[in-house]
Simulated assay, not measured.
Amino acid sequence: MEESRETLAQALNCRPGEVVFTSGGTEADNLAIKGLYWSRRAGDPRRLRILASAVEHHAVLDPLEWLEEHEGAGINLLPVDRHGRLSPEGLRAAIETEPVSVAAITVMWANNEVGTVQPIEEVVRLAAAHGIPVHTDAVQAIGAVPVDFAASGVDALSVSGHKVGGPQGVGALVVRREVDLTALLHGGGQERDVRSGTLDVPAIAGFAAAVEPGREAAGRPGRAAQRAA
């Protein structure tokens, strides 16, 4: 399992300790969005707003709706242009309306219906000016376009195994160790106490095997090649 964690970390350019294994992209999105909202609101009751693009996957839109109905969150769905691309200026305006009220921003890396790649680095730049954490659903991006967690500057990133040819029922939330995230599941304290529960090691190994060819294609040798060397 730890070798698989290292493989995924190398594929996404993050630290192995930042990889939190989940049951899939939906759980990873829920953990990121709810976990960030609860943590940020606990630290500052004014943090009630979550900003998101209007074209997010339902794995993001439905948790946002749930937080609005049950947890008092204010959800701002930001419009996109005719290509499905979020306007950075629209995001800037939404933030600057009341920066201290924003708990988090979530914008998908690539759209699951039309394939539009969102301006993630610009989103991060605008958010960083106000200390706002950014989550991105990269489920449709990994394996299709370069996904570099460290370079992007995002605080949390969701991925899923079956979208890259791995098994169903496994995914991961890559989350910076400095980010305070309230857990959804409590129990044995696995995955840094962020996601308790016995892990599906064969599925995790399958996920790692699925991302390995992408690393080799990008010019980074896979673990098998490293062992051979």
Rank of each mutant, 00 (worst) to 15 (best):
E89F: 11
H58G: 10
E96I: 13
I75H: 02
V60H: 00
P99A: 10
R92A: 14
E98F: 13
I75L: 06
A59K: 08
L48Y: 00
I105M: 12
H58I: 15
L86Q: 02
E98K: 15
L51K: 03
N76W: 13
E98L: 15
A104I: 02
V55C: 05
L48A: 00
L64M: 07
L67Q: 01
W66H: 10
E96N: 10
A59Q: 03
I75V: 08
A73M: 10
I95M: 06
R85T: 12
P99G: 06
A104G: 01
H70P: 08
L91I: 06
H57W: 12
G74I: 13
N76Q: 14
V55I: 07
S101R: 02
H58F: 15
L61A: 11
I50H: 06
E69T: 03
H58N: 14
P79M: 12
G72Q: 06
V60W: 04
L51G: 02
D62H: 13
G74T: 13
I95T: 04
L51P: 00
I50W: 09
L86M: 06
D62M: 14
A103T: 04
G90W: 04
V102Y: 00
E71L: 06
L77Q: 02
S87D: 11
A104N: 02
L91V: 04
A59E: 00
P79H: 09
G84T: 01
H83C: 10
S101D: 01
R92W: 07
V100F: 15
G74K: 15
E68A: 14
A94T: 00
A94P: 00
L78T: 09
I105H: 11
L48S: 00
P99L: 09
R85E: 14
R49A: 02
A93F: 08
E68G: 09
E56N: 08
A52D: 00
V100T: 14
S53D: 10
I95C: 06
P63W: 11
E65L: 15
V102L: 05
P88N: 05
R82N: 12
V60A: 01
H57I: 13
L48I: 05
H58V: 15
E98V: 13
L78C: 09
S101L: 02
L67Y: 03
L67P: 01
L78D: 05
A52K: 06
I50K: 09
I75A: 01
V55N: 08
L91F: 07
A103N: 07
L86W: 02
H83G: 13
P99S: 07
R85H: 09
D62E: 13
D81W: 05
D62V: 14
E89D: 12
A54M: 09
